[in-house]
Design a protein around this nucleic acid. Sequence first.
DNA 1: TTCCAGGGGTAGA
DNA 2: TCTACCCATGGA
Length: 303
Amino acid sequence: MQTRLRITPKYPFNLNACLRSHGWASLQPNAYLPDKEGLLRYEHLPGFGVVKMEVTQGAKDGGQSPLTVIVDSATPLTADARQALRKRVAHMLRLDEDLQPFYALCQVKGRPWSGIQPGEGLLVRSPSIYEDLVKVICTTNIQWGGTKRMAAEFVSAFGAPYGGDGERAFPLPEAVACVRFEEFTGRVRMGYRAAYVYELSVGAASGEIDLSHASFSGLTTEEIRQRLKAVKGVGDYAAASMLMLMGRYDFIAVDTVFRDFMKARYFPTGDYSESRALEIYQGWGEWKYLAYWFDMLKFRQQA
DNA sequence: TTCCAGGGGTAGA
DNA sequence: TCTACCCATGGA
């Protein structure tokens, strides 16, 4: 059963540029479709089931060209499922996020930021905070290939299946919480991160850890940061990454990617220090992460 | 074989 | 608040 949904972006948006700008689009249950310049994902809609969806955009240069979502499901999409899916796609692609103040500041700051096309390079995220938290924990102290492997194993071991070909949606915390820790570590090789992901899943399933979007709305960035850091396995890097995914750009996630870029762009003589590196983006206020992110994207494009 | 990766928790100062 | 030390796992 196939359904086509059409979503017109409220602001300029370039799907392909967003999918290619960082790795989130290729972490299971997501996959980047290079030939279609689109996104494939298996999504679990509670009360309905698991669907397969492909998101593409008509115009290659983005703009406000409509997005097409082709949804495959075992039974016809209900009105509720259709609405839930629209909401999730919009959230994943940040279609409702107003970045006009950031783009205006970019024009003031000049190169390379003034060269940013609105809607390019935005960071794709997951429909749920739980999924992003698990994935961010799986980026810590490991190479990208390891993160992809862990996401794939986690989905394969605990995700709800779509059809019979092995494709699965991202697991719900309840699916993890209902097995013992020994079984969890036996099915997914996450190393010492396993304890963090398991504890997070048990807490989210029991309601002890509230990861609903609503529970974070209205909080200051610092309040959200403190809540995130209360999760075991989440330190400064992971909290900053999560804040970015949640649309708060006040903090920069300092990791090897940040350090390597800063050394290449601003400290080629080897006098790098973290505090001096962070000072460079101090004037960007609530847009520091995006300033750094686009600085890096433009630097890479140039290289 | 050794090092270290898109770090974080903990103990001790 | 800062620093050492330890943490599983796999790629280089």
